[in-house]
Design a protein around this nucleic acid. Structure first.
Lengths: 205, 205
DNA sequence: TGTACATCAGTGAACGCGCGTTCACTGATGTAC
DNA sequence: TGTACATCAGTGAACGCGCGTTCACTGATGTAC
């Protein structure tokens, strides 16, 4: 039985975190798929061989990145949605938080957007799983206003809302943080169309 | 003045085309960013040095790929939209053609989806330009049913339609061609929500 | 308390390999006159 | 028609370089007794 000094554990996590951040920075510039182990180690200021103390290879690092960074990132979009009153306010909370995320950490947002539809199925799956929480939040926001068929039938609606949200995040990355307000209004307008349409469809199916 | 044998020109284009197809195939497996010139040349069955007879580097090849293959591909989604009667039929025509494209050439569809939000701005721009034709088509489809403010105000609507269409294409790639019909219904349902919402917003703004 | 041992993050040297690129050449085709 | 020359896609040899990975080692820390 071996006990580990908390200080040591902390230090190790600091280095692992540096590797993840270095990866995000480089991936935002040239794409995750192009990155090499040595390149990342260099950017994180460790010896190439030290990489193996943390990850077996770049794929493992990428999946860890999803767990360690993307998970909390995406979760933060949804945090205030429960407290909102009505679908519109909940959408606004989610949209605002997601766009704030894009402004605060554009490299991480780029990673999410790119790998969600990238070539590697493992990454697509992992990211879809994390983003499922956002779809859930949209669903919860919409459900009370639509009632009826107990949520299941609203799945295309919440999926559409998620797609529009991510499209807005992509636009926010293109245009920069100074246009966040414009993009937010745009996404909200699109979500309103969806919601209005869903209300109309309920009345006249 | 030097004249070029049409046979020779044709043969050269055949090799260039082989390079583009080889790139798509490899990119679908590991991501465009990871590809090397030698890897692509090998898959296209030419010597590495012959690559330079066609493209200066991989970036140039990628941009040529957008012009030569993505352009016609995306244009085909839109071809039958003009002839359709009403917004719903036009949406159906575009959606059906796009999903047919995903089934016929999944590697090309993956490239479009991935590079549209990838790390390289040149690729994002080039693809956005090609996809603008699809947004245009949606706009033309919606405009007569909404009238009013002469199309300009409907831009978020057509942009939303394009986003939902591409999301559907991504889903079609995940689920395979045998689920094309299901995905089509799903996308159509989402587009209907948008359109219904837009009609409602016009009546009660 | 002291001694022997285990664990583990980090490292530098070294390896074989595939990479992008340059170069000089071939051979087929077209042009000049 | 014949001869000299230009163009150009394709190629093999060769280059220097960075890559991923293995290995044996260090030094700090914790455990056993």
């Amino acid at each position: 039985v071996v006990r580990v000094n908390p200080e040591k554990k902390e230090e190790k996590e600091r280095v692992a975190h540096a590797l993840l951040r270095a990866t995000l920075q480089l991936a935002a510039a040239h794409g995750f798929a192009s990155l090499g182990l040595r390149e990342v180690a260099r950017a994180a200021e460790i010896a190439p061989t030290s990489f193996y103390r943390h990850f077996g290879d770049m794929e493992e690092l990428g999946l860890s990145l999803v767990e360690q960074l993307v998970g909390p990132f995406v979760a933060s979009w949804v945090e205030q949605a429960d407290a909102a009153q009505g679908a519109r306010q909940a959408c606004d909370a989610i949209t605002s938080q997601a766009l704030a995320g894009a402004a605060a950490d554009p490299e991480l947002m780029r990673f999410v957007l790119a790998e969600r539809v990238g070539a590697l199925p493992k990454f697509r799956t992992a990211l879809t799983n994390k983003l499922a929480a956002v779809a859930e939040a949209f669903n919860s926001a919409f459900a009370p206003e639509l009632g009826g068929s107990e949520g299941v039938a609203h799945e295309p609606l919440s999926a559409a809302a998620l797609a529009l949200l991510l499209e807005g995040c992509a636009e926010a990355l293109e245009r920069g943080p100074e246009h966040a307000a414009v993009v937010r209004e745009r996404v909200m307008a699109q979500l309103s169309l969806l919601l209005t349409g869903a209300r109309g469809a309920r009345r006249a199916p």
